[in-house]
Amino acid sequence: MNRTLLVGLVLLGAAFGAGGTWLAERVAPGELSGADRARVDRAVHDYILANPDIIPEAMQRLADRENGKVIAAQRSAIETPYGNAYMGNPNGDVTLVEFYDYNCGYCRASLPTLDKLVQADPKLRIVFREMPVLAQSSIAAARAALTAASQGRFKPFHDALYAAGPVSDQTIAAAARTAGVDLSKRPSDTDDEIRNNLALTAKLGMRGTPSWIVGDRVLSGALPLDRLQEAIAAARAAKS
């Protein structure tokens, strides 16, 4: 094999997260002498130093691949809402899952974006999953939200609590009254639901709210409308 082509393949492998020597040995088994191997390793080393942006790209691709395996194995559980904790088309062809905390200002700021997503995409379903990590009051709010979802009143409660300001027993109770939720009828499995959500987010490396799952991807932060639409479009294309 032409040595220039061989090194080119190695560098291509480095750019996409494969070890240079590993790729070269499989493209041209036995063609690397000790001197060639040293030159390949140096070429990869120099290439990475000259193009350090490939490192986070490669790491992200690896994370996406591993997360995709976890998501695929648990897709039904991830995308099936608790009660009516969703908005949009209940039979949508793509599901966007938001992991949120009622003490999260970025989650509150994302509410108008989610409304725009649903208005613009009649085939989209958005599922809400509790990720109460910011304060003890977040756990009480998550339990109340699941109670609301079990009574078919999730979205009115969700919006009312975010509109009420800092989370407290008083604002939770006020949001429940506004939404017509009886908090005394909390289902027995709400804590199990929260534990399962937190176990999943830990497995997927989610470190804050809001976090999102769409298709096989995990996204983080208060993302702009176009970024979420791009991710939704990619998930839809992958299914076709």
Rank of each mutant, 00 (worst) to 15 (best):
L200H: 03
I232C: 07
A144N: 03
A50F: 07
I126H: 06
L200K: 04
V10L: 12
A14H: 08
E66H: 03
A43V: 00
P112Q: 08
I48W: 07
G19Y: 04
T95S: 13
R195F: 01
L124Q: 06
L134E: 06
A238H: 11
S184N: 11
D101G: 04
I139H: 00
V70N: 11
K185N: 03
T147R: 03
Y82A: 09
G221K: 04
A140K: 11
M59R: 14
A142C: 09
A15V: 05
R217T: 04
P224I: 05
P224S: 09
F99E: 10
I194Q: 00
N197H: 06
E130W: 01
R207T: 12
V70F: 05
L32K: 08
S137Y: 02
S211L: 08
V118Q: 12
L223S: 13
G180F: 09
L11M: 14
V27W: 08
L200S: 12
L223C: 10
A175H: 08
A38K: 10
T209L: 02
I54A: 01
M1E: 07
Y102I: 01
Y100W: 11
I232Y: 13
P29L: 13
C107L: 02
A176M: 09
V118R: 10
A149P: 04
Y162L: 10
V94F: 10
R37Y: 04
S138C: 01
L183G: 00
A238E: 15
N51P: 00
A237I: 12
